[in-house]
Nucleic acid binder design. Structure first.
Lengths: 137, 137
DNA sequence: CTAATTCACTTGCAATTTGCAAGTTAATTT
DNA sequence: AAATTAACTTGCAAATTGCAAGTGAATTAG
């Protein structure tokens, strides 16, 4: 881990995910049921493989993600969020709410936004449960 | 504004504040009552002045911050959050909660964390009200 | 059992961004 | 008029990013 800049919790968070890519990988795991390298690679934003490999390594070092051999296919690795990683769901959700409100072209339905603000706790519970069950979404 | 990478709301948010400094400046305005260049400069993390100037300019371009001449001292400028900027408070709060829970050395009291999770709405209301009143904190 | 393929990376290098230190400029105070 | 304050700007070295191509371990195909 790089050295921390200050005792500030926001600075601590940014030391991990204060860049353009890290949270997109977390998003793919937390919200899109993705778990393999090539899935993150083809997520849509076009991350370079060297950057992706680097971010996955950092996420593992920080204890946000764990890496394992895929039991169904040994040439594959599986990446999944730890509890610490799942705890980032509220951060992701608030980012979605913010963009949903302020970005005219963002892909968030009014329904989703409504639920995220008015029934936040239940939504977070559901998202967490869904994220634990890695499947197609 | 740089071109957006995808219609994803998280990617949109990261296009603005996906770096190590932007949210620290927002933090200073939203949570610490700061409004002048030199205050951000001396915030503790040691941001370089060229980076600070650049981020302030971007924040203004994005409509998150507005810049004005300081009526009390014309050589100063005042930076303050717009409504769009104040709407980042929930994101900041969730980052604080995450670090407070997972960073053993973070400077967040158990009391603060407790309030942030159990009485979130009221805390956000208070933070917003406080952030509108720019004063010493 | 050998050859092709899949998948997860690594490497080399150019381009962009960051960070440091030293200006510069405009407004105020002395 | 000269010194000071405050907000930047500039030049350059160092670090990070991004692109394209390559490597190596495991799996499947023939």
């Amino acid at each position: 881990m790089p050295d921390r800049r200050s005792p500030c919790p926001i600075a601590f968070a940014l030391d991990l995910f204060g860049d353009r890519w890290t949270l997109l990988v977390v998003r793919d795991m937390a919200l899109k049921g993705k778990s393999h390298f090539h899935e993150f690679e083809n997520a849509g934003e076009g991350i370079a493989t060297n950057i992706l490999a680097d971010r996955l390594k950092l996420l593992v070092e920080y204890g946000v993600v764990e890496k394992a051999r895929d039991p169904e296919k040994g040439s594959r690795r599986i990446y999944r969020l730890t509890e610490k990683g799942l705890d980032l769901l509220p951060v992701l959700l608030e980012m979605i709410v913010w963009s949903g409100k302020h970005d005219p072209e963002t892909g968030v339905s009014a329904d989703y936004l409504d639920r995220a603000t008015r029934r936040r706790q239940s939504m977070l519970r559901d998202l967490r449960a869904a994220a634990r069950t890695v499947d197609e979404r």
